[in-house]
Amino acid sequence: MTRSQTPPMIRMTGIRKAYRLHRKLFAPVEELVAVNDLSLEVAAGETVGLVGESGCGKSTAVSIMLGLLKPDRGEVEIAGRKIGALSVDERVRLIQPVFQNPNASLNPVKRIASLIGQPLHLHGGENVKAEVARMLDLVGLPARLADAYPGELSGGQRQRVAIARALILKPRVLICDEPTSALDVSVQAQIINLLLSLKSEFGLTMVFVSHNLAVVEHLADRVAVMYLGQKVEEAPTDALFDGAQHPYTKALLAATLLPDPETGMPEQLIGAAPADPFATYAGCRFAPRCREVQESCHTTEQTLRRLGASSVRCTIAGQKGRVGAAEPKPSGCS
């Protein structure tokens, strides 16, 4: 995190977003806090991985980052400007998304050329045709596919179309929400390679949302782990994979399956009780499933603090070890 004179490309501060819904028909309205007190900074040219399980709030966070959803509280700044103050035209030229499922995000009755060219067309670009041809080449699609429909393409090719469409306005930030989860491994590797080469070619800033830790490890400079709406740990990628501090991060890493039969069954470091997003917690939200839980965890409000290279939302992390045994102090980004 370089705090030089230039502002970070993305700065989210104290974001909270709650959905009000009925848990059952005729039940009273309840509040589901999807994202709570989320702060995240992404420097220009940096790739930050956002990981966590379903329901942890990563997709809500992404929607807020893209300006598609208004937070209840908190601020989002892109390239130093508040996202609410940007016009749509300005916003789309700064930040663009690539979503998980290209089958759902591409209109099946439009031709590839028109899908890729649409953002440029809508936002008053010129030479749409030439630009589309350039984009097709850039993402490694043959020019003849310009007249094809999405249904004629394979899953990997469709994801290339989605990437071309996101990049045609030359944004500075690309938000990838599980861009390879719907793809086969051989194709996943192709898309990862494409993202890597585009990033270095254009100096893109990337936020990469995924539940696949191996993919995140490969792409990200820094990783933020979310659990039930909160960031529970954030660290440079190496630090996170070499020495995770939060019990939830440790459980995630232990559950990640490696293509190596010698490692055997994954170790289970997490209780079977499912996470309940409606519950209110006086203390740690992870405490009901935590293997390292102590009595105080249920009652002590958890705040982010620095521990070694990490920022951790856990009062007991690092207690036994010597690593970064500095006294807990609230971190700058909480």
Binding site: S186, Q190, A214, E217, H218, L258, P259
Partner: peptide, 26 residues
């Protein structure tokens, strides 16, 4: 071989390196 090589393995595959993808499609 192609399948196994295409999977990034934390701690083994150098970060940000090009993955040996299988070209083409089924």
């Amino acid at each position: 071989r192609g399948l196994l090589a295409a999977i990034p393995v934390p701690g083994q595959t150098p970060r940000g390196s090009e993955l040996p993808a299988i070209p083409g499609r089924v």
